[in-house]
Design a protein around this nucleic acid. Structure first.
Length: 316
DNA sequence: ATGGTTTTTACTGCGTC
DNA sequence: GACGCGGTAAAAACCAT
């Protein structure tokens, strides 16, 4: 789907911003010129509508093989010299050849990771894939994260910053760009970094590298994620989404944590559908407090007619 | 740095099973 | 009595200035 027409360089529309994707910047990447989104060339990895996976699926989703990737500092294209010391027919090499091959091997690694920047880059990129795999992010997200980091390294933004902090910031920004609902908290936890550090670096990268504001994932995304991770009845999800679409006033949502709002929608829906999931559980998976859930609920109930339908149910 | 806004922490009281 | 829920005050975190 993301095949590039090799001559013109123009391929498909960017799923994030709608602009046309350009085959290559300077490295053969397929990127969106306006938002920097990296198009993955694998169909199963298309992401904006991607939902959080539950645990069993996480296990199965581990990816194998080595497609050409931005996440390796040399794009995974170099040939390895094996360590078995055998020739192409499988015979052992004589001592002289062993010596020569050993030297070649040594030099190859030296050349490949020659400059300090390259060494740093390969380190960061492997960490990015590591963090991404902990969060079970689709490949597209880690690719975009890798691209973000490459650009920030090129622009010297990453200079004298904590490496792991920068990877977390890149991954987080990538999540937002791709519309994958991962909170800063989650990313920070997966990377094992202090949340505030990530936030700081994130802002920095946003200001210096990304010039545009990247909107956080919509409440819908949070609702879907919530329902999926908590294994809640899909009918509640539908109800919650309906509710959310009918009450998508900025008056209520602006400035509020979207996760809290999503939790409120899910909670109200669960009550309406007679399921009645405790606030505690919803608050836990949404990673907000019960208080926040309550506050959002109250605002929703105060401002909308749901109240009339909900009241009798709550009275019981 | 600062002040305004939102979230969290911690605690209390109420009704129900 | 444990549990779920609603409320509140004060602390903490967040954000724009």
């Amino acid at each position: 789907m993301w095949k590039t027409s090799s001559d013109s360089g123009i391929s498909t529309a960017c799923p994030v911003c709608g602009k046309f994707l350009i085959g290559d910047y300077d490295k053969g990447e397929v990127v969106c010129p306006s938002c920097g989104f990296v198009a993955a060339d694998q169909a199963e990895d298309q992401g904006p509508e991607w939902k959080a996976l539950d645990l069993e699926e996480k296990e199965r989703r581990v990816r194998v093989g080595s497609p050409r990737t931005l996440s390796l500092h040399d794009f995974g294209l170099t040939t390895e010299i094996g360590g078995q010391m055998r020739d192409s027919h499988g015979k052992s090499l004589n001592p002289y050849m062993r010596n020569a091959v050993g030297k070649m091997k040594k030099w190859q690694t030296r050349i490949r990771t020659s400059s300090s920047e390259e060494r740093g880059l390969s380190n960061v990129l492997s960490r990015i894939t590591e963090v991404a795999s902990i969060l079970t992010l689709p490949r597209m997200v880690s690719e975009t994260a890798a691209h973000i980091y490459r650009v920030s390294a090129r622009m010297k933004v990453a200079k004298s910053k904590s490496i792991i902090g920068m990877t977390a910031a890149s991954v987080y920004l990538s999540c937002r760009k791709c519309g994958v609902g991962r909170s800063l908290k989650e990313v920070a936890r997966a990377a094992g970094v202090d949340k505030r550090t990530v936030a700081k670096y994130y802002r920095l990268v946003l200001k210096e590298v990304e010039r545009a504001y990247v909107p956080p994932p919509s409440v819908d995304k949070y609702i879907s994620k919530l329902v999926n991770t908590a294994k809640i009845d899909p009918k509640i999800e539908r109800l919650a989404l309906q509710l959310a679409s009918k009450t998508n006033d900025t008056k209520i949502s602006s400035g509020k944590a979207p996760a809290g709002l999503a939790a409120a929608y899910v909670y109200i829906s669960s009550v309406l559908s007679g399921e009645h999931i405790p606030q505690r559980e919803i608050a836990e998976v949404a990673e907000v407090t019960e208080v926040t859930v309550r506050n959002r609920c109250r605002e929703l109930l105060d401002n909308y007619i749901i109240r009339q339908r909900l009241k009798p149910l709550m009275a019981r």
